[in-house]
């Protein structure tokens, strides 16, 4: 079971503001996910490496050759706000 404080903590890290109803729903859903993980943890997995990747590939590398970047206008097209060629966002220090 995940408690209310933990949900609030995770929400804070994700910069999310949750209503009371959302908080309750999240607690239930996250608890369900964690219970499922508990079931996996209960298996005897000694000697089984954690799976970090599902494809058996290594060293997929790219040559250090520049490509053409986006025109700035295009890059800024979907910016919620902009100024002087830069994305403008609410100050995280505010």
């Amino acid at each position: 079971m995940i408690d209310r404080e933990q949900v609030l903590h995770v929400a804070r890290l994700a910069r999310l503001e949750l209503s009371e109803a959302e908080l309750e729903r999240m607690s239930e859903e996250l608890s369900g996910i964690l219970e499922h993980l508990d079931r996996i943890s209960a298996l005897d997995l000694d000697g089984v490496d954690p799976t970090s990747h599902v494809v058996a590939l290594e060293n997929v590398l790219r040559a250090d050759v520049p490509w053409e970047s986006l025109p700035r206008e295009r890059a800024l097209e979907q910016a919620p706000d902009r100024d002087d060629g830069a994305f403008r966002v609410p100050s995280p220090q505010a």
């Binding site: 890059a75 706000d81 994305f87 995280p92």
Partner: peptide
């Protein structure tokens, strides 16, 4: 020079 509360300019 920007009005309103503080904001940040992002250069990627």
């Amino acid at each position: 020079r920007i009005h309103g509360s503080g904001s940040s300019l992002v250069d990627f």
